[in-house]
Amino acid sequence: MKKTLKAALCAALACAMLAGCGSAPSSTAPASGSGSTGGSASTASDAPEYERATVRVAYMPNMGSGSSLITGIEMGYFDEVGLDVELTQFQGGPAEIAAMASGDIDIAQIGHGAHALCIEGQAKIFALDLLGVSDEVLANTERGIETVADLKGKTIASTAGTSAEIVLDLVLGTAGLTTDDVTVVEMDANGCVSAMISGQIDACATWAPSTTTIKEQMGDKCVSLGSNGDFVDTVTFPGSFVATEKYASEHEDILVRFTQALMKAQDYRAANIEQVCEWLAKEIEADPETILATKDSGEWLTGEFLVGALADGTIEQYYDSQQQVFVDSGRIPEKVPVSDYVLFDVMQKAADAYTAAKS
């Protein structure tokens, strides 16, 4: 069965105007929580009994957004905690958050850029998924572009409100440029691919696997001018799971169970990344080799790491550092307490359940 959100698109685009919407969501078949390949639900007599629930989850068709979800489904981890996960694809985090606001989606996995909307109160973060390193600024050398300075006066495609937009700002800054020195046009990740290959634009800022496809198709005509990997010493680019404040307050137990399963999925993902690439490629109907080429597009955090990072304040530091990027770029006027929009209580309950299940 295919799930479509045509009706939600209008609301999604309207709600996300301030942050810049992603493109229209495309649908994928709801994925059974039982999984088709991996582990089965716990059968121990002392295993917790859960009230069955269905969770509608938005994600983007790439490893950074979909890898832990696909792993949790394939390995049966969501099924173990009584959750059936239905997936719907989007092309950008702001549109995902807008779809949650309209009630068409329960949970979303977002990249760095859309976190600004959480800081502004549009959603609550309840789980840290990974640190992204897949965003990149690519340029067409046939347009006389060899360095960042050569971008001055050029036309660059990007998706507003995403991590790629932030990386574009950072990369331009290395040459003393800002977006006032270039012409930025709005395009989703798919649009960036076709526009770059066809020569409609001079450069683009987007993420894997779109960057992989562009470089493969353009060959020597494409040059990489920078990525978020160039700024990891000073900036973190978290990918997180979010929900609206209303959903979080009414369904905290579901968020805790979802995060507990997610932490197991993160452990498996980190140890079996190539297998996860195969699963994701099948889910999004992409070329397996293209997805495999993006296996290093994230710092794949584990459940064990997250337990410690929550306890010693590392997770809070990640989000605090992220806020500073938004302040420096003018995206938000000033920093706010991280606890205003990050549900540390949900993270802690999930960490406790994860740890207990392992002991």
Rank of each mutant, 00 (worst) to 15 (best):
Y77D: 11
M63C: 08
T71H: 10
G38R: 14
C21Y: 14
D202Y: 02
D46T: 15
A271L: 08
M1V: 14
E278V: 09
L69Q: 04
L130A: 11
G103A: 07
D46F: 09
I291A: 09
L69V: 06
A281L: 06
V336N: 08
V276L: 01
K152H: 05
Y247F: 15
A14K: 15
L151H: 00
S240M: 02
Y354I: 01
D169C: 08
R269K: 13
G153A: 05
V193S: 12
A24N: 11
A208P: 13
G153N: 08
K152T: 12
T213V: 12
I73S: 09
V137L: 15
G39F: 07
G111Q: 06
A311K: 14
C204I: 01
A356P: 05
I110Y: 02
A356Q: 05
I315V: 14
S339H: 10
A44W: 08
L138A: 07
C21Q: 12
I273E: 05
T28Q: 10
T37G: 13
G161C: 09
C118K: 03
A157V: 01
G144E: 05
Y318M: 08
C15G: 14
T183W: 03
T71S: 13
A11F: 09
P30Q: 05
S224F: 04
M100S: 10
C204L: 07
T213I: 15
G33Q: 07
E283S: 14
H115P: 00
F237V: 08
